[in-house]
Simulated assay, not measured.
Amino acid sequence: MNEQFFHLPEEKQQAIINASLEVFATHEYKRASTDDIAAKAGISKGLLFYYFHNKKSLYLYIYDYTKQIVTAQVVDAHFKEITDFFELLAYSAQKKAAIMSRNPYLMDFVMRCFYPEKEEVSNELNSTNQDYIDNSIFLYFKNVDFSRFRQDADPQQILRMLLWMADGYISEKRRQGKPFVLDEIMHDFKEWSDMFRRLSYREEYL
């Protein structure tokens, strides 16, 4: 992308970001129109491509932007004070759910990013998503007291299994053509977390 984008007034940057998020959230990548994005942002398509050389560059920027926004709002002062692995997961899930409920386009876009179809951006998204999952325990659980786990329990593997269960829930909804219900998966995620707590924590921490 062209660094001149960051020299635009904040209001104009946000207009381009919001327009892109709306269009990418409501359409598959290949059907998302840069003409629509430019029109909603109140700029010409030529100017849009001056800042972002092509649709793929714009899409990947919006992807990185949403990750930064969500992380900034989730990893707050209280987040850094939590030392219990499962309490941290619950707090993070609640914060993300609140963000998603206030920003429906954000939720739809994130779902498309984590479950990309066979499109031009799929390889980049799949690779980045996997790196994020692999490194999350080192990035976001630095203050967790892992001594609460039994010696034979692997926190990183538990995190992966919880993510796989959430992935299975969403994949099933997609196969059935049913909507993704945030409250429903939050309820299930809590039950899964409670189950893993009982299976993996030392008795004195149950």
Rank of each mutant, 00 (worst) to 15 (best):
E119C: 05
T26K: 09
H7I: 04
E117M: 14
K12G: 03
A39S: 12
H187C: 10
Y115M: 13
E191T: 14
K142P: 11
E3V: 12
E204T: 10
A90I: 11
Q157C: 10
D108R: 04
T128E: 14
D84T: 09
D145Y: 04
D188Y: 15
D84M: 07
E191H: 15
G42P: 04
D154G: 06
D131A: 08
Y132N: 13
V110G: 03
S122K: 15
N18H: 10
R148C: 01
H27R: 06
V181Y: 06
S101R: 07
V181W: 07
A41T: 11
N126A: 07
T34R: 00
L159C: 03
E184K: 13
I82A: 02
D167W: 05
I133N: 06
R150G: 08
A38K: 06
Y132I: 08
L48Q: 02
D36S: 12
K40N: 01
L60C: 01
N123C: 06
M165I: 04
R175F: 09
G42H: 12
Q157V: 13
M111E: 02
D64H: 15
E87P: 07
L58I: 10
Q157L: 15
S200M: 12
N54R: 10
Y115G: 10
E10V: 12
M1P: 02
F109I: 00
T26P: 02
